[in-house]
Design a protein around this nucleic acid. Structure first.
Lengths: 352, 352
DNA sequence: TTTGGCAGGCATGGGATTCGAGTGCTAAAA
DNA sequence: TTTTAGCACTCGAATCCCATGCCTGCCAAA
């Protein structure tokens, strides 16, 4: 006979597992507390509601399920959901057709920024939840090429191409007008000196170089310096892209305005969500935050399913979806997993 | 004695005007039906509630106010609000300090896109409503300069600078690798041939030229052609920028999810809102759509205050705010007005 | 023309009641 | 020892009722 209510890590009888699993599945599909009778009817086991009740009482004692009130059925707790996704859930892999579709969608993008946006909107459209994608730090990538284009007045357009295929441009103001030849020369100097370095390092090296060579500075360097000052000062940090927030309007758990509002504020502030997603950077595969596990109160009734995406084996960001804890993990998990891999491939292709 | 309840265009006695005005003001500040007693107390006129009631009955008959139910006060109808903003409202001009602040905020942007975003967020932050800005058609502006930067493989980065100071870049795929010199040559050809033309026309002219010269085409033109094909195909139409949607969570009129959801959907779809904003392009100054005047049911309880912004006397887009019909028009109208003018100035400065 | 007074109507909120769904417990059956 | 049937109990949700308060409409008097 299996130890019944030993302590938290009690092995949970097979019957209890089947029951818990069915209960979670029913709660996911019905969005309501599950009663012993319904469970007795739906599960294959030939047991009476009374027996089910006994087992449910055990599960409740273990903190895996709870009753909103005395005369209601049970709903899974966060810990119940945790056990479910860790041990009870069987995810069927995404069918080839869907993978092909995703691949097609992500394949025809032309630049990384667009790829990230596409990934996010795909996630939200398919799951009907909100899609999340972190935009990798610009500073981590390598500088491939820099170009200067003279605009009117004293303004110069600086184009930064990084090895990930991203293009970035800024307009900088100079103290005098520069001839195209001067700018070409400066660009050549820049490319020769700093090409291939990490953007993050360029900034540091640049400052050192400027310091050291300040006496023997020639016209060329002065130009480069003036541009560089304005170029690398602002450190555009990691950023977050959210799409399909509107889908959350339909989630019954978030029916009250305050909760929904909290989420939208979080999307706007981004800070907390970024930190959460950063945590999954270290993980190698899909990572799931269930309910209050995240530590943020606005995510009370929400779960976040994330996966890091990588280029050349190097993790550079994470993506995922956010939705009610009561979501279809079996569909969401493989989708997030595959999307992360496909996004990685798409980005690699971009960086040619 | 003035004709009392003649027909719609009855001139409305001065007393009635004062009363209606006060009623609207009180409804705006209290967000609730206004009773005859409250009106008698607040308005300067020395009248009893009973008298007020008589006048209110007249106003109701004219369709300017209505009672949600028998034992509630009155609230202004759309027509009441219309009369209010057209005839009864006195807007105090924005104080110099605020104008200075706005100018400062809009002054330090570096590119047009950023200026539009800044304008939108300023509008939403100051009014605590949602800010709207249309992004002008790219096709209407003139092509100032074009540059080609070779990337790896067969890919070329095309940089389009338009006379409004906007910079746009696209990556195009070629069927072979091009030498930098080829690209420089092609760029020179492009700039010489099409520089200064409207982007919209460039596309048309280009196609004609290609057609005509197809036989005597040289290597240079072939290059240009290949690039141009991919460059001008997609016509990126007018677009809309929305900010501060979250502010609408606080509006009591939109307390029910369905309405709020409708608005957010409209923000996402953009089509209807764009059409609405386009209507005010023809207007010279601030234009207001009250409640159902807009013709869109999602804007039932909302008003949209817009103003076109122009560069060199030419209207190029509109901006505004969207909020509950019950908004502080006296604060919003001058703000929208001034912001439109300042945005125009900022954009003009960009186009150097 | 204005005002005071009074009756009527209606939303709002609290309390009581009913109803139904589900559980916990106990004792009997397997 | 495990399972089951039965029964009492609990609690939320819906309904109704009623008192309350607010505001109007009307009428008669000023």
């Amino acid at each position: 006979m299996p130890a019944k209510s030993d302590k938290s890590p009690s092995p949970l009888s097979e019957r209890a597992q089947i029951l818990l699993r069915k209960l979670v599945e029913m709660h996911i599909s019905e969005a309501q507390p599950v009663s012993s009778r319904a469970l007795a009817r739906e599960t294959g086991l030939d047991l009476s509601p009374a027996t089910i009740r006994n087992i449910m009482a055990d599960l409740e004692e273990m903190g895996l399920i709870s009753a909103p009130h005395t005369s209601a059925g049970r709903i899974p707790t966060s810990r119940g959901y945790r056990l479910f996704v860790d041990a009870l859930l069987t995810v069927q892999p995404l069918d080839q057709r869907s993978v092909r579709d995703l691949e097609g969608e992500l394949g025809q993008v032309t630049d990384p920024q667009q790829a990230l946006g596409k990934a996010s909107s795909l996630l939200s459209n398919i799951t009907h939840l909100a899609g999340l994608v972190t935009i990798p730090r610009r500073t981590a990538v390598l500088l491939r090429q820099i170009e200067f284009v003279p605009l009117g007045e004293n303004r110069v357009l600086v184009i930064l191409v990084t090895t990930d295929g991203q293009v970035q441009n800024r307009v900088v103001n100079m103290d005098r007008r520069f001839a195209p030849s001067e700018l070409t020369e400066a660009a050549n100097y820049f490319n020769a000196t700093y090409g291939g370095q990490a953007v993050r390092d360029v900034r540091r090296t640049l400052l050192e170089d400027l310091e050291r060579d300040s006496r023997e500075m020639n016209q060329l360097m002065a130009t480069a310096r003036q541009i560089a000052r304005q170029l690398f000062t602002e450190d555009d940090g990691e950023d977050l892209m959210v799409s399909g927030e509107d889908n959350l309007f339909d989630v019954p758990e978030l029916c009250d305005l305050a909760k929904l509002r909290g989420l939208f504020d979080a999307f706007k502030a981004k800070q907390d969500l970024l930190q959460l997603l950063d945590r999954s950077m270290r993980a190698n595969h899909v990572h799931i935050f269930i309910g209050d596990e995240s530590g943020y109160s606005v995510l009370q009734d929400c779960s976040v399913v994330t996966a890091p995406y990588k280029v050349d084996g190097q993790v550079i960001g994470t993506l995922g979806v956010i939705g009610p804890t009561r979501m279809s993990y079996d569909r969401v998990i493989p989708l997030v997993d595959v999307t992360a891999r496909l996004l990685g491939s798409a980005l690699k292709r971009e960086s040619s």
